[in-house]
Simulated assay, not measured.
Amino acid sequence: MIALGLKNLGFIPLDDFIVEDHGDGQVLAAWLSAQPQPSSQEIEDAALLGPIPTLDDYRRAIQSHVDATPQQRAYDSGVTCSSYVNSTNPTWAAEAAAFVAWRDAVWAYAYTELAKVEGGTRPQPSVADIVAELPAMVWPA
């Protein structure tokens, strides 16, 4: 109904937008475009894929992975682990240094892959796929 209101108020040119009211409470609204329209198969395929992940979806998933990794060593989060980098306890300091180097490698990889997607040299991966591709954490012995 918003589209109808915008169209009726003149905010959307009548030649660029169509609205069909099927009388059953459903309204179909569509932009008219000179661009080729997707086939019904392309529309069905896109619907099966679900919504396209946003940058924030990737950021949250990667940060969750980063924070979960030091929890394997009983640290509360990545922030807590990295705070031990100057610890007088050599084990904690070594773990923190290894974690900080790994965290930096994770984000460097993520931004490199984002640039590839934005540059058209890589298709956009799923959130799960990009998390699975991240460098592995190797804790000091």
Results as ranks from 00 to 15, higher is better:
74 A>I: 05
92 W>D: 04
47 A>S: 06
66 V>E: 07
31 W>P: 00
124 Q>F: 08
123 P>E: 12
35 Q>S: 06
122 R>C: 04
26 Q>D: 02
119 G>R: 14
105 A>E: 10
74 A>Y: 07
137 M>F: 15
134 L>A: 12
123 P>C: 02
67 D>S: 03
83 S>A: 11
69 T>W: 02
52 I>W: 02
35 Q>C: 02
81 C>L: 06
100 V>T: 14
11 F>N: 04
54 T>P: 02
124 Q>R: 14
59 R>E: 08
132 A>F: 10
85 V>F: 06
27 V>Y: 05
96 A>R: 02
113 E>K: 14
10 G>W: 11
4 L>F: 13
136 A>L: 13
2 I>G: 13
50 G>A: 06
140 P>W: 15
87 S>H: 02
77 S>R: 05
52 I>H: 02
49 L>W: 02
125 P>T: 03
124 Q>W: 04
93 A>E: 08
141 A>C: 05
63 Q>G: 01
15 D>H: 11
95 E>D: 05
114 L>V: 05
76 D>E: 11
20 E>T: 01
100 V>C: 05
79 V>C: 02
6 L>Q: 13
39 S>K: 10
101 A>F: 03
59 R>L: 10
108 A>M: 04
134 L>S: 03
1 M>L: 14
30 A>K: 10
45 D>K: 12
73 R>V: 00
119 G>D: 07
60 R>I: 10
73 R>Y: 10
124 Q>V: 11
108 A>R: 11
5 G>A: 13
101 A>S: 13
64 S>H: 12
114 L>A: 11
60 R>T: 08
28 L>G: 00
23 G>M: 04
138 V>S: 15
49 L>E: 12
10 G>T: 03
134 L>G: 00
18 I>M: 09
19 V>G: 02
106 V>F: 06
133 E>T: 04
57 D>Q: 01
122 R>E: 06
132 A>R: 14
36 P>K: 13
125 P>H: 09
16 D>W: 06
59 R>I: 07
55 L>W: 14
30 A>F: 05
76 D>F: 06
95 E>Q: 14
74 A>D: 08
128 A>E: 15
46 A>T: 10
3 A>Q: 08
62 I>Y: 12
79 V>G: 09
109 Y>E: 02
91 T>K: 08
2 I>H: 15
51 P>E: 07
99 F>W: 10
90 P>E: 01
137 M>L: 15
61 A>Q: 08
113 E>Y: 09
68 A>M: 09
132 A>P: 00
34 A>C: 02
82 S>N: 07
119 G>K: 13
115 A>M: 11
18 I>W: 03
32 L>M: 09
86 N>H: 09
5 G>K: 10
110 A>H: 05
11 F>M: 10
26 Q>I: 02
75 Y>C: 07
86 N>M: 04
67 D>E: 07
2 I>F: 14
105 A>N: 12
114 L>K: 14
109 Y>P: 00
44 E>S: 11
125 P>V: 01
69 T>N: 02
134 L>C: 09
32 L>R: 15
83 S>T: 07
64 S>E: 10
138 V>Q: 15
42 E>P: 03
103 R>Y: 07
7 K>L: 15
97 A>R: 15
8 N>R: 14
41 Q>I: 04
122 R>W: 04
120 G>I: 07
122 R>V: 01
123 P>F: 08
69 T>G: 03
46 A>L: 11
86 N>L: 05
